[in-house]
Design a binder for these strands. Structure first.
Lengths: 344, 344
DNA sequence: CTGAAAGCGCTTACAG
DNA sequence: CTGAAAGCGCTTACAG
């Protein structure tokens, strides 16, 4: 029974309704007036046969697709999930359906998905999350995107400024991290460590640089061995915090470059018997929804995640006004919660 | 500049390479031997023109799609995210790309996505999350799925037994909840409340029934006003817990039908100054990754979420062996953590 | 308003 | 191994 059976086609419907192919197509698309009785017959035939148009044939024949593709690193990461939510809300308002893809930070797979979406002639492609600082990747991506754009496709991104010349929503990672540094300094901290992700991610290098900028204003710096690089995930944060303790380092304040990493770190500290914020202050970045439910709630730099999703979607939906790409900057806002306190 | 430009087609490549359409197609697909020099010319032309095959034309001409569609209620819910992760892992091993869709529990939109995937002739459609106990929805869904299946499509689901006759991975919600009830009774609790989601979701009604079953074995029951229904989300859990307190109810133990709802409840209790587990025990269901990072870590019924994702994907990938649908049951395992303790 | 027909961009027997 | 041609299932000018 595994054999492929023939699909019900428009021709089947037309025959059963005893009308021409063209007429059947017209009533099903509502594109033009059709006599009421013919119309009825077509509708009845379509229902009786459980007809579904073949989207490929439709697309090939010129009808436009209503699918929007969103590519991110990992949908199970709350940061992306929150942005995706905003994208979908806006897409729904415009009657568009959105399909999500996760690359798991595999550059090659990211290209595969773009190629697939491009091949499917998706109405728009949204790239969420920082790109790779890698010449090969940049070239390969541009090679996919340029022809797509030239043939009428829309592309918009969140945070990947380096190479792509497309519409973008850019969180001010550098400024936000600098502002956080200032707030932490104001609390009295002078001795910091940073739990960092891979430096090849622009988001990571921007936040790290900004944090250093902010500290530098007060003449404070972070020693190289106090910057610990790990995976850009909850487990990476846990590992980095563990490594910090293994090295016997005892800063008064730790900055994790994302909330997700901070969550792992918080648990590592808790399990090691280090009390936050009594013995150690901890701050993250992003303000993903869950951080308010942690104990203690996390100090962080809040980004309007849902809104950022709405904005990229709108960027891709709106007709481009010129040949220049549009850029919308989104500032971060420092939110002090109880995971940070004055050093003892 | 917004005008649609013509796409680069296979014909363009063939012309530039000075070969026939057929030859160009063959080298690009690697389906058969082509003389080395022709091969080179085609490859060079394709690269020079940044050619991407039109997936619609390919699909229409008979090539099979490598896309798998996964439809769930909300990808930003960690429960679905964890399952999706398992699905994608397995899909990647088989060289398949997966596209995710969120319905936000809108039954009509779910049908829309199935129709879209069906129209795109996706290789398989996976439905994750319990269905609606609603005759109209069941009929509409069956009307989409039956023709898809008949024409060779694969469908597999996680937890929606009632109406669909397709391959399924079924978590043992009822038994798991009963087992949790027994563990909680063993701790000494007799006075319970339940924070519940909409009863129309089979997952909810199964867990509620199972919990009652388990309690009933010890002659314990939950009064109707101790079962509070709210949205199936973190905020729903928060609202339900708040309502519980507003009613002045003080059970010794609260069961939230999902961990996500339990997270909201935990924060509501914390903010109200009620200490968990000292003054109140709290348990959830699912064992989503974050629960170990909460303070206190949550007692729950663990479901192997990643594995469940792998199993649905495998079900959809494997050739069906007969006309009967395959069902794989997945037991839950009670995990006692520090959010529950003996009543004072 | 309705129908015959061309065309969308591929793939794949079928000949050579 | 290579090419001419049919066909996949639609949509949409173009006639009538």
């Amino acid at each position: 029974m595994a054999g492929e059976q023939a699909h019900v086609t428009l021709l089947d419907v037309a025959k059963q309704a005893e009308v021409s192919l063209a007429t059947a197509s017209r009533v099903l698309n509502g594109t033009s007036q059709v006599r009421a009785d013919l119309r009825e017959r077509v509708l009845a035939a379509a229902a009786a046969l459980a007809y579904t148009p073949n989207a490929h044939a439709q697309a090939l024949a010129g009808a436009s697709s209503q699918a929007i593709g969103v590519i991110c690193h990992d949908v199970s990461d709350p940061y992306f999930a929150a942005i995706a939510r905003g994208v979908m809300r806006t897409a729904a308002e415009h009657g568009q359906l959105v399909m999500l893809a996760s690359t798991f930070r595999d550059a090659a797979r990211e290209i595969d998905y773009v190629a697939m979406l491009r091949a499917q002639r998706a109405r728009a492609i949204l790239l969420i999350g920082s790109g790779f600082e890698d010449r090969n990747w940049e070239n390969a991506m541009a090679a996919e995107l340029d022809p797509y754009l030239r043939s009428g496709g829309r592309v918009a991104v969140i945070s990947r400024h380096r190479s792509l010349k497309v519409d973008a929503v850019l969180p001010e990672n550098r400024e936000g991290a600098a502002e956080l540094a200032r707030s932490l300094l104001a609390l009295g901290h002078r001795d910091f460590a940073v739990l960092s992700g891979p430096h090849a991610l622009t988001t990571v290098s921007d936040r790290l640089a900004g944090f250093r900028d902010g500290l530098a204003e007060a003449g404070v710096s972070v020693a190289d061995d106090h910057v610990i690089e790990a995976a850009f995930t909850r487990d990476g944060g846990h590992a980095a915090a563990t490594e910090l303790m293994r090295r016997g380092l005892r800063p008064t304040c730790v900055f994790a470059v994302t909330d997700v990493m901070a969550i792992g770190a918080l648990t590592a500290f808790r399990d090691a018997g280090i009390s936050v914020p009594d013995q150690l202050s901890l701050a993250g970045f992003d303000d993903i929804p869950i951080v308010g439910d942690l104990t203690p709630p996390l100090t962080t730099v809040a980004l309007p995640l849902n809104e950022m999703g709405e904005r990229v979607m709108n960027l891709a939906l709106r007709e481009p006004r010129g040949r220049r790409s549009r850029v919308e900057r989104v500032p971060g806002r420092v939110v002090m919660r109880s995971s940070t306190a004055a050093p003892r």
